Computed example of a mutant assay.
Amino acid sequence: MTTSQPTPAQLGYRMPAEWAPHQATWLSWPHNEESWPGKLHIVLPIYARMVAALARSETVHINVNDEAMEEEACRLLHSVGAEGDIHFHHFPTNDAWCRDHGAIFVVRDGDDPLAAIRWEYNAWGGKYPPFDLDRQIPRRMAEALGAPCFDGGMVLEGGSIDVNGEGLLLTTEACLLNPNRNPHLTREQIEQRLCDYLGVSTVLWLGDGIVGDDTDGHVDDLTRFVAPDTVVTAVESDPSDENYDALQENLRRLRRMTDHRGGALRIVALPMPPAIVYEGRRLPASYANFYIANRVVLLPTFNHPNDDRAAAILAELFPTREIVGIDCTDMVWGLGAWHCLTQQVPAV
């Protein structure tokens, strides 16, 4: 794990919290029929509504495979009234999950204030080949923005981590310690790499993810920082639900954790939606998969009374942002929602 080159942290870079100002949000337009079998035509207009909400908030960059895909995207965006600063890039992808295959951006004061980290990407442990095009996206994003790009040197997806911008990083043992990611690295080596490249000082470990999550337990379906000392965490109230035990264990772990000043974390419980089952498979539906943009918070909803409860909780936590709930009952058939589809570019 040693290197002769200075690490991003040594150069003064750090990953800001998601609520810090963005210069843009980056997306990859959905096109893989295998990700939403039989439902891609339903998903695309829903995705367009997300883009429209984001474009009210900030600049949006979208990867498309070619001119034809750009034209189709423009047609759908026009149909939902999307207006704003939207840029298309002919950067072909294998799939739409920009949170995981896109660059993770870090910032510093001085020259080259924005930099990209290109982590290794293997489609969640090699589950969904091919992923050769997705692996090229971080460098192409960096080049488009004129930002230097560092190689992180291990497999890491953006949805597997969450930071508070002041030294803390949340992740899960189920994902980062899974042998299908970095079997040659110890927990301590993984922690050091996160500190070296994202400018964090402390890694906080949760346990397992929710049922149906093919990412092996991404933290963005579980627990999210909403302030330097505050997290929201998904809690299942029904002891008979198959997510109950894992979420209770994560809650117990959070209660033992401390913030960057050594104080106990403030923990806000976020309800879970009802079980969403399609073709006999439980899907990873979670309100924790929200995305914090400059002026809006995109909330996945599921046509259930808990939608309003989740929205009210986030509205209290983000009083200057509009909470935009968009039904993800069909979207989550792809095993992800708004946070999985987005990647922030910090303002500098």
Rank of each mutant, 00 (worst) to 15 (best):
G110R: 01
L265V: 15
N164Y: 04
I46S: 08
V64F: 03
L145Y: 09
N63E: 06
L335G: 00
R140S: 05
M257S: 06
Q344R: 11
N94F: 12
L341S: 08
A347P: 01
E120L: 15
R261G: 01
M141D: 03
M141Q: 15
V348D: 07
V297L: 04
R75W: 07
D259N: 15
R309N: 10
K39P: 00
I46K: 10
A315G: 11
D220S: 05
V226E: 11
I267L: 05
H22L: 06
R252F: 06
I313A: 01
T320Q: 04
A20K: 07
A115L: 10
T342E: 00
C328G: 10
D307Y: 01
F290M: 13
L335I: 02
A293T: 11
S28D: 08
L177F: 06
C195Q: 14
V277M: 10
R309H: 10
E143F: 09
E188V: 05
E157L: 10
W338L: 04
A293F: 11
A337Y: 02
R252G: 04
T329W: 09
G165F: 09
G84A: 13
F225T: 08
L265P: 00
Y197P: 05
V43Y: 12
F105R: 14
G165L: 08
P300E: 05
M141L: 10
D162K: 08
A288D: 11
L254K: 06
E83Q: 15
A311H: 04
E71I: 10
D307M: 12
E242G: 02
S79W: 05
L11M: 15
L11T: 07
T320R: 09
D213M: 03
D216E: 14
V219H: 08
R255Q: 14
G207V: 00
D134V: 00
P239K: 02
H339W: 01
L265S: 07
L76Q: 15
D109R: 01
V235T: 01
D213G: 09
A275I: 04
I104S: 13
L27N: 08
V106K: 08
C149Y: 08
M15Y: 03
H260Q: 14
L185P: 03
R135N: 13
D214A: 12
R266S: 12
S201L: 07
G165W: 08
F131H: 02
E173N: 06
M257E: 04
D112I: 03
S286T: 03
G110K: 06
G209W: 09
C195L: 10
A53Q: 07
H87P: 04
F318G: 10
D307I: 00
P6V: 15
I276Y: 01
L145D: 02
S4E: 09
M50Q: 14
D213N: 12
L194A: 07
D109G: 04
H22W: 11
S57V: 08
P300M: 05
V43L: 13
T202P: 12
W36Q: 03
S237P: 12
N182F: 12
N182R: 14
G336K: 06
P8W: 09
A52Y: 03
P45G: 13
Q136W: 01
P273M: 05
F225W: 05
A68V: 14
W36M: 09
V64M: 08
L44T: 15
A24T: 13
L170M: 13
S4L: 15
L283H: 10
G262F: 10
A310I: 02
L270P: 14
A234Y: 07
I104F: 02
M272W: 05
